Simulated scan of single mutants.
Amino acid sequence: MPELNKNVPSRERRRFPGISSRAYEHPADRSALVSLRKLTGFDKVFKAISGMLPERSLRLLFLSDSVRVSDQQFQHLHDMLRDACYILDLDKVPQMYVKQDPQPNAMCIGMDEPIIVVTTGLVELLDEEEMRAVVGHEVGHALSGHSVYRTIMLFLTNLALALAWIPLGALAIRAIIAALLEWFRKSELSADRAGLLVGQDLEASMRGLMKLAGGNHLHEMNVDAFLQQAEEYDRGGDVRDSVLKILNVLPRSHPFTTIRAAELKKWSESRDYQRIMDGHYPRRDEDKDASARESFRESASSYADTVKNSKDPLLRLVNDIAGGTADIGGKLRDRFNNRGSGGSAPADGSGPADPSPN
């Protein structure tokens, strides 16, 4: 394999030597991955499961019925792939295949070695810079290890489905699948960020997402109006709409495209993104020291911020109830503290306690 450092991107872009995937992973995605990486004996489980999966068959299928990207076939995709691996400092360039399918799609799969697959529908839909963001997205999946953990989790889920006849088994399985899909959706947000780090062109990333939603009709679309849809979706109508949104998203492995666009734009304006672009980011050789507890704390904080800042009616209600409960708890605590110190609280629970008579 040629030296990666000889593969300089076609235009000047920042490179991130030794970057850890933790730099761009969504907090919920990162906490799950850090925990899995720290599980004792996980490597043994991984090897046992990998022998039960039809990965070799899958590789042979793509080799026999798709087009392998190289310097002789789909060379522009080959160059993009090498660029992406160069920028994210991925040691080994994954194999990429183009599969005949009018549906625009891309995926990163595999246990031993990741394989990237893109459909002809996607190749025909996107321009060069939009496609570069997609390739970076898939390389981000590979760097994070999503292809490995997704394959394992999907296998375990399918195995559990076979046992759904056990009493309450179906209900438990649905809960597992719902949690798994929530992780998948967050991992897609992580990979979108990786795509932006590779392409370093927010407009191209936005255009690509808009095309996935509305096809090759950019002259009929507007980025600001597209992002406004995400805000309107978040704001919703009433609690009934909130429930419908939850039901709509539960079976999906990907977030809705307007939401992905809004989340990516928000991250591109964050201090975290700017620090990465300035060269300040966690390194891969520090992954073994990453704290699972800290990752869970960041994940919980991320979900709390989502609830706090959301304009969704149901989430606003949850936030108001939580805030009201905290206020009541604070007043009760103050009341008991005042009594414990010899004071008595006013009947309405507010204001300073009157001094006790001597």
Rank of each mutant, 00 (worst) to 15 (best):
M1I: 14
E3N: 14
L4H: 08
L4V: 15
N5M: 15
R15A: 15
P17H: 13
S21K: 02
R22H: 06
H26P: 03
S31Y: 05
A32H: 12
S35R: 07
S50I: 07
L53Y: 07
R56T: 14
V69S: 00
Y86P: 00
I87C: 03
I87H: 00
P94E: 02
Y97W: 08
N105V: 01
A106E: 01
M107F: 13
V117N: 01
V118P: 02
L122K: 01
V123S: 01
L126W: 03
E130Q: 04
V134R: 00
H141Q: 13
Y149Q: 10
R150A: 13
I152G: 12
I152R: 04
L154K: 10
L154G: 13
F155P: 05
L161T: 05
L163G: 08
I173H: 06
A175Q: 11
A179K: 14
E182W: 13
W183S: 09
W183Q: 10
R193Y: 02
R193G: 00
G195K: 01
E203Q: 15
M206G: 03
R207N: 15
M210E: 04
L212E: 10
L212P: 04
G214D: 15
L218Y: 11
M221N: 15
A225H: 11
F226E: 05
F226S: 06
Q228V: 01
A230G: 03
Y233H: 12
R235W: 09
G237A: 08
D238V: 07
V243S: 10
L244C: 12
V249G: 06
L250C: 05
H254G: 08
P255G: 09
P255Q: 07
P255M: 08
F256H: 09
T257V: 12
K265A: 10
K266H: 10
R271M: 04
R275K: 12
Y281A: 02
S291K: 12
R293T: 10
S301N: 10
D305Q: 09
K311I: 02
V318S: 12
I321Q: 14
A322H: 11
L332M: 01
L332R: 00
F336I: 11
N338R: 10
G340E: 08
S341P: 00
A345I: 07
A345T: 11
A345R: 04
D348V: 00
G349E: 02
P355M: 12
